[in-house]
Simulated scan of single mutants.
Amino acid sequence: MISLRWLRVRGPSMVPALYDGDTALVRMGVDPRPGEVVLVRWAARPGQLSVKRAVRRQDDGWWVLGDNSFGSTDSRQLGPAEVLGVLRWRISPRPGRIR
């Protein structure tokens, strides 16, 4: 089922696309395209949700990376992730489409 949720970004992993404290809308339950910013869950850390950029689909999930490679824990360390939704719009502090 497709739904909209909002979230608050924590940490520096997606700088410059998103900053710590940004609020964004997530379209849940949609399939991403490579290059889109996504909300993911890791098999190795089931209680942790992360915001990353979708790179490519793999047999067991999506390979995702943070835009800030110096401040990101991503598929390089944790392997493929389960994509829960796609971030579409930043609500604050700079409203606009997320690219």
Rank of each mutant, 00 (worst) to 15 (best):
M1Q: 05
M1V: 09
S3Q: 06
S3D: 11
R5H: 15
W6C: 06
W6L: 07
L7C: 12
R8Q: 15
V9M: 06
S13D: 08
M14D: 10
V15S: 07
V15P: 00
V15M: 05
A17W: 01
Y19R: 15
Y19P: 02
Y19Q: 07
T23N: 10
T23H: 13
T23L: 14
R33L: 10
V37T: 11
V38T: 10
L39T: 10
W42G: 14
W42Q: 14
W42E: 13
W42Y: 11
A43Y: 08
A43M: 12
G47S: 11
Q48R: 14
Q48P: 00
K52I: 13
R53W: 01
V55Q: 14
Q58A: 09
Q58C: 15
D60C: 06
G61L: 15
V64W: 01
L65F: 12
N68S: 12
N68C: 00
S69Q: 14
S69M: 06
F70G: 00
S72F: 04
S72A: 05
T73R: 14
D74G: 05
S75K: 08
L78I: 01
V83H: 09
V83E: 13
I91S: 06
R94F: 02
P95A: 04
G96Q: 00
R97T: 03
I98A: 03
I98E: 09
R99K: 08
